[in-house]
């Protein structure tokens, strides 16, 4: 058993008894109770489990919890609350960028990462950025629209 000290959504956790083989996704869900992070494939393809680790998007199903010792993690719960969605979450709602909602946490976390790092000048850029996240409900059109809209608002604010 290993000790894992992490900051998740701004809160510090010291968990003394973590099996070295425990996946980060299981750690977040089962040990910290943060079930907003979803597990869709456990082989790093679907992207539903995407979280931010030290500011970069990462597949929590492909990381071990012990690898995140000392890290700063943000999950979907850290972005906004149902009463006060953050900008990107609000645009997903506005543009009907979700249906069943299962891939949504991963889409939103990937979208956050894209918005922070890239200009996202065209829809093709956004689609390319989302190519590691699978959605079976929406056909992606409205997810792209939500991120496009969030990107436009970001540009407006910056200018």
């Amino acid at each position: 058993m290993a000790k894992v000290s992490v900051t998740v959504n701004g809160e510090k956790y010291d968990v003394p008894d973590v099996e070295p083989r425990m996946l980060l996704s299981d750690f977040l869900r089962d040990r910290l109770g943060l079930t907003g992070t979803h597990v869709g494939c456990e082989h790093g393809v679907c992207g539903a489990c995407t979280v931010l680790v030290n500011g970069d998007s990462a597949r929590s199903c492909l990381m071990l919890a012990v690898q995140t010792n000392g890290a700063e993690i943000v999950t979907v719960e850290g972005l906004g609350s149902p009463e006060e969605l953050n900008e990107l979450q609000a645009q997903f709602r506005e543009h009907h960028g979700l249906q069943c909602g299962f891939c949504t946490p991963g889409m939103v976390m990937t979208g956050e990462d894209l918005l922070r790092k890239y200009p996202l000048a065209t829809d093709e850029d956004i689609r390319e950025g989302l190519s590691g996240n699978l959605c079976r409900c929406t056909g992606y059109q409205n997810i792209v629209a939500a991120i496009r809209s969030a990107a436009a608002r970001r540009t407006e604010k910056a200018s």
């Binding site: 907003g36 719960e77 972005l79 149902p82 969605l85 997903f92 709602r93 979700l98 909602g101």
Partner: peptide, 12 residues
């Protein structure tokens, strides 16, 4: 449905 699902407050 959206607010809870977007904020990770859904319950699957």
């Amino acid at each position: 449905e959206d607010a809870r699902l977007l904020a990770g407050n859904g319950e699957y």
